[in-house]
C-alpha cells in the first residue's frame, strides 16, 4: 500500500490543500507579529468568530454563501481594527506580555460570548461546494478545499499588492523594520496598528469563512487553529508572509504523509518536531527575517 502511487498522490493532494488552508489561517498571526511585534492569543477566536458570523448571516439574514462570506470577512476587518485599538494600541510601548494577556482575555470573552449567544450545540454551515468531489486518475479533489486553495491565492496576491503598492501597506512594512524611525518621519503609528489589526482579522475571518463549511462549528474550534498557526509562523520565519505560505504547505504535506504512512499520534507530533528542528537549525526561520526584540 505504501508504494501505491495513487495513495501517495492522494496524500500529496491532501497535504497541499490542507497546507494552503494552514497558511491562510496563519497569515493574520504573521502580520500582527511581523508588523507590530505582538503575539495575538485571540487568533483562534478570530477564526471561530468568522465562522459563526457566516452561520449567522446565512441562517438569520438568509444570505447565500458567497455574499455572506465576503460581507462577514469585511465585518471582521472592523472587529480587528477595534481589537487593535483597544488592546494593542495602548500597549505598543509596553513589553509584549500585556498584549499576550489582553488578547488571551479577548479570546476567553469571545469563546463564552459565542457559547451564550449560539448555544454549545455544534452547528453546520452549508456551502454549495461542500459535497463536491472530483476524481482525477484515482485521486480525489474536494470542491470546498479547492475553494480554500483559490481563496489563498487571491488573498495572498491581494495582500502582496497591498503591502507593496498602497500607502498604508508601505507604512506597515516600514513599521515592521523600525517603529521608532516611523514615528520620526511622521507615520501615524496608531493608525497603522489599527489597519494591521483590520487586515489580520479580515484574513483570519476569511479563513474561518472558507474552511468552516468543512467542519462543524463550536465555540472552541479555534484552539487547534492557533497552535497550527503558531507552528506555521515559526517555521516560516516570524512575520514573513511568504515564508508562512511555504511553511503551511510543508507542514500540510509532512502531516499528511506522517498520518497516512504512520498514524495519528505521529502526525500530531510532527508539527512540533519540525518546528523545534527548524529553530535549532535556523533560529531565524526558514526564510530568515528576524524581528528584533
Amino acid at each position: 500500500m505504501a508504494t501505491d502511487p495513487v495513495f501517495l498522490a492522494q496524500l500529496a493532494a491532501n497535504g497541499f490543500s490542507v497546507g494552503l488552508g494552514y497558511a491562510l489561517a496563519a497569515v493574520g498571526l504573521a502580520l500582527i507579529f511581523g508588523i507590530l511585534g505582538q503575539v495575538n492569543f485571540a487568533h483562534g477566536e478570530l477564526y471561530m468568530l468568522g465562522a459563526f458570523l457566516l452561520f449567522w448571516a446565512m441562517k438569520q439574514l438568509g444570505l447565500p454563501y458567497g455574499i455572506a462570506a465576503v460581507l462577514m470577512a469585511a465585518l471582521m476587518a472592523g472587529f480587528g481594527a477595534l481589537l487593535a485599538h483597544v488592546v494593542i494600541v495602548p500597549n505598543l510601548d509596553r513589553g509584549f506580555e500585556s498584549v499576550v494577556l489582553g488578547t488571551l482575555a479577548v479570546g476567553i470573552i469571545l469563546q463564552n460570548a459565542v457559547r451564550l449567544g449560539f448555544g454549545a450545540t455544534p452547528l453546520d454551515v452549508a456551502s454549495p461546494l461542500e459535497s463536491q468531489a472530483f476524481e482525477i486518475g484515482g485521486v480525489l479533489l474536494f470542491g470546498q478545499r479547492m475553494l480554500v486553495c483559490a481563496t489563498f491565492l487571491a488573498a495572498f496576491s491581494g495582500l502582496y499588492a497591498f503591502l507593496r503598492y498602497s500607502e498604508i501597506g508601505r507604512a506597515m512594512r516600514a513599521m515592521a523594520q523600525n517603529r521608532e524611525a516611523c514615528v520620526m518621519v511622521g507615520i501615524d503609528v496608531r493608525r497603522v496598528t489599527r489597519w494591521t489589526g483590520a487586515l489580520a482579522a479580515a484574513l483570519t475571518g476569511l479563513a474561518g469563512v472558507v474552511i468552516s463549511p468543512l467542519f462543524d462549528l463550536y465555540p472552541n474550534m479555534g484552539t487547534e487553529v492557533v497552535i497550527k498557526s503558531f507552528a506555521v509562523v515559526i517555521i516560516g520565519g516570524m512575520g514573513n508572509i511568504w515564508g508562512a505560505a511555504i511553511a503551511g504547505v510543508a507542514l500540510g504535506l509532512a502531516e499528511s504523509y506522517a498520518g497516512g504512512l504512520g498514524n495519528a499520534a505521529i502526525r500530531d507530533g510532527i508539527a512540533f518536531i519540525v518546528m523545534i528542528a527548524m529553530l535549532l537549525a535556523r533560529p531565524q526561520g526558514l526564510f530568515g527575517r528576524t524581528v528584533r526584540v
Partner: peptide, 13 residues
C-alpha cells in the same frame, strides 16, 4: 539559544 520570541513557541511545543 533561540530568540526570545521563538522561545515562547519552543517551550509550548
Amino acid at each position: 539559544r533561540v530568540s526570545r520570541h521563538s522561545f515562547v513557541i519552543v517551550t509550548l511545543s
